[in-house]
Amino acid sequence: MGLGPSTKETTLHHFRDPLLNIISKDKDIDLIGIIVVGTPQSNSEKYYVGRRAATLAEAIQVDGVIISVDGWGNSHVDFANTIEEIGKKSIPLVGISFIGVQGKFVVTNKYMDTIVDINKSPKGIETEVLGENSVSEYDCKKALAFLKLKMKRKKE
């Protein structure tokens, strides 16, 4: 499944998630909510939950989406699918994921053009050191800046 210690988001990580801190501090942005979606085992279920997430984002009429994934490898199947479903609805989107060298996407699509890589290890691998490849404030600032740009372009 590819969920190693270096990218693992602990309970403490969720409690003080930099993604939330950065987005909610931004004066141009209204953070509507956090959609938590699981990563099921079977492919049909992966597509099912991804479509639900995209429909939910569309229903609440958002201008943009930031999607992050806790894990890589098999989890990238879900990640790619959810991004595609959101992309098809013409909602600007930025992804956040561990990629490095080891976590190259197993599947891709045309909507995966803006992904922030959270790898911090020099070799680009799952180092098995807890927290090493976790999302930092810098990653979140970058993701938000990209999203703002994409939302602006869509308006034009």
């Binding site: 209204d30 953070l31 909510g33 956090i34 990563t39 201008d63 989890s75 939302m151």
Partner: peptide, 18 residues
């Protein structure tokens, strides 16, 4: 008057330790 954003967090849900 602000841009509405939603964050999607894809979390593990495959079984034991996920």
């Amino acid at each position: 008057n602000k841009k509405r954003i939603v964050v999607i967090k894809q979390v593990a849900g495959q079984g034991a330790f996920h």
